[in-house]
């Protein structure tokens, strides 16, 4: 049983990085596809399209920060479940927000191509999703302080 909890602990420790990386990759691919398409139909402003399409990269960075905050000298039955719970749930959050951020960025790029003046405001939904990722990051850091070493 203890071995299983230890395995879960290791799973939870790396989950934020792995799931965050998947979310970032997926989100950047969605936003990047829209940016590539938009560049075909634009005579300039390529940098800003590519720039915003990279916004979902932050999820994997948050995942790395969470992993380091969860890291313990030893993973055992006392802390394995906590690592699993905090790591997995924060990882799922990074995965979901990364994908959804990519989707709203694709929409924002597409819409701002037709109406350039809304470019800034069209990024607001992506910024809100970024905020949710930050919530998950901050509270994972807070909880990591109470995990028994």
């Amino acid at each position: 049983m203890n071995e299983f909890v230890v395995a879960l602990g290791w799973f939870g420790l790396f989950a934020p990085v792995a799931l965050g990386a998947i979310g970032s990759a997926w989100g950047c691919a969605l936003g990047g596809s829209a940016a590539i398409g938009a560049m075909l139909d634009s005579d300039g402003g390529y940098g800003r399209f590519i720039g915003v399409s990279l916004m979902p990269s932050s999820q994997v960075i948050y995942g790395i920060v969470i992993m380091f905050s969860l890291q313990q000298p030893t993973i055992d039955a006392a802390n394995g479940a906590a690592l699993f719970g905090i790591g997995l749930l924060s990882g799922v959050t990074m995965l979901y927000t990364g994908i959804r951020q990519g989707e709203v960025l694709a929409s924002a790029i597409h819409a701002s191509k037709a109406k350039p003046e809304i470019f800034g405001i069209s990024l607001a939904p992506a910024a809100v999703l970024e905020g949710f990722s930050v919530f998950a990051l901050v509270f994972a850091l807070v909880l990591s302080g109470s995990i028994p070493a």
């Binding site: 969605l30 596809s33 940016a35 590539i36 597409h110």
Partner: peptide, 11 residues
């Protein structure tokens, strides 16, 4: 992704 690029390329 291909369709995202295609739709975004249409004015």
């Amino acid at each position: 992704h291909q369709y995202i690029a295609l739709v975004s390329s249409l004015p």
